[in-house]
């Protein structure tokens, strides 16, 4: 199966949710719904800030520890960018439904019991951010995320951005990083064996993917940038997606 080269997104796909987004990239397709601020359950109520509830649902099988782990990572990083203090005692609920994951043609999945790949994190994260933007939830900043795998080839390690399931399988370590629109590191999770020096390299690679400067009107920077970076321009993608949404919302202006 060919992997989509460019990320694709549609906003407001679920008519009954406050905000929703469908995002597909690198073989992953995720749909997210955001409801909030709504009434929080007593046990989740916080007197000074909104509780951010993230629920990850795999395409097949029921969620287990693996999903809970991803949920907790997403929850803590999204709480950082949502202005939770604006809505005390309330709940902002984000449900992420995985629809498609890239298939590994070389292995038969043995288990129906889902075990989501670590490499799905960027897709989940990006969908959540898009759905939050579509719901108009106030945020400190937007954010972009990417996954980098370190694959050892002929004794030397190369870094692969947006690894395929095959890459993840043979990789020594997989890293997921997210940056806010102010170039701050928001999320860094790693799996596998790696050295500090390798992590620094991963950090630089990921930063290049996530934090490309917004092209100026003359398009000068764009041309320069394309020469030494790879992968899609996530930030630009986010902006153009929102541009379409806002333009269509405010068509009457």
């Amino acid at each position: 199966m060919t992997v989509t080269a460019a990320p694709e997104a549609a906003l407001g796909v679920l008519p009954r949710a406050d905000g929703s987004a469908k995002y597909s990239y690198a073989g992953y397709t995720v749909t997210a719904s955001v409801n909030g601020p709504i009434e929080a359950q007593r046990r989740d109520e916080h007197p000074y800030e909104a509780h951010v509830d993230v629920i990850v649902r795999p395409a097949a099988g029921v969620g287990a520890t693996r999903e809970r782990h991803l949920e907790s990572i997403l929850q803590s990083s999204l709480t950082q960018i949502i202005l939770v203090k604006n809505f005390p005692r309330s709940l902002i609920q984000i449900v992420l439904q995985v629809e498609d994951t890239p298939e590994n043609d070389y292995v038969n999945t043995k288990l129906v019991q889902a075990s989501l790949d670590f490499a799905i994190m960027p897709a989940l994260f990006q969908t959540a951010v898009l759905a939050l933007l579509s719901a108009g939830v106030p945020m400190r900043a937007t954010a972009t995320a990417t996954a980098v795998a370190l694959v050892s080839q002929d004794g030397s390690k190369t870094s692969v951005v947006d690894p395929s399931p095959r890459d993840v399988e043979i990789a020594q370590s997989v890293h997921v990083l997210a940056f806010t629109s102010q170039d701050e590191l928001l999320l860094a999770e790693s799996e596998g064996d790696f050295t500090v020096k390798e992590w620094d390299e991963v950090y630089e690679t990921a930063k290049q993917v996530c934090c490309r400067p917004v092209p100026t009107k003359e398009g000068m920077e764009m041309v320069l940038d394309d020469e030494h970076t790879s992968g899609p321009d996530l930030r630009h993608f986010l902006r153009s997606t929102m541009e379409q949404k806002v333009a269509s919302d405010l068509h009457w202006k």
Partner: peptide
């Protein structure tokens, strides 16, 4: 849709015009 960060920063918090 705007937030004032003292002393003089004004920052949007939602996507819009």
């Amino acid at each position: 849709g705007l937030r004032h960060l003292p002393p003089s920063d004004i920052i949007p918090v939602v996507a819009g015009q």
